[in-house]
């Protein structure tokens, strides 16, 4: 079974990897239930849904839309998250690091030990 190809994470990006439930009709990526939405009688991924929403709302309203989307989906996932990612990308030119940036990474638990030092005065400067 194909796995979900929709990217998640803001600072460190990765593919979702959950079992796919279908293919986005716009970009053709496999996507899971969490990252799919019904839109105009078809199924598209959240990344493409954000692009579609952008076409129908002005820049001024986009921040507000993220808040609205969050309020509507308070117990569920996850359109507001992709709106936030998109906003960050547009206004701040930040896209996070992905696996290509981390070729030398070994994501093991023992790579580094956080010693908890400086805990008391973290924010003193």
């Amino acid at each position: 079974m194909a796995s979900c190809e929709i990217q998640t994470g803001i600072f460190v990006l990765r593919n979702c990897g959950a079992p796919s439930k279908g293919t986005c009709k716009v970009c053709g990526k496999s996507s899971c239930v969490k990252h799919s939405r019904a839109f105009e009688s078809t199924i598209i991924c959240l990344e493409c849904l954000v692009e579609e929403k952008k076409k129908t709302s002005s820049d001024k309203k986009r921040g507000r839309n993220m808040e609205d989307a969050y309020e509507e989906e308070i117990g569920t996932d996850f359109l507001w998250y992709y709106m936030l990612k998109d906003q960050l990308n547009d206004s701040f030119s930040f896209t996070g690091f992905d696996s290509r940036d981390y070729d030398s990474f070994s994501l093991t638990e023992d790579t580094v030990v956080w010693d908890g030092e400086d805990e008391g005065g973290l924010f003193d400067s």
Partner: peptide, 23 residues
Amino acid sequence: PLSELVKAISQTYKQVQPLGNLV
């Protein structure tokens, strides 16, 4: 705003680069 806090965290990530084969 939540987006401002996320920007603040992103700022710290902008100050480093991974020790990998950067594209």
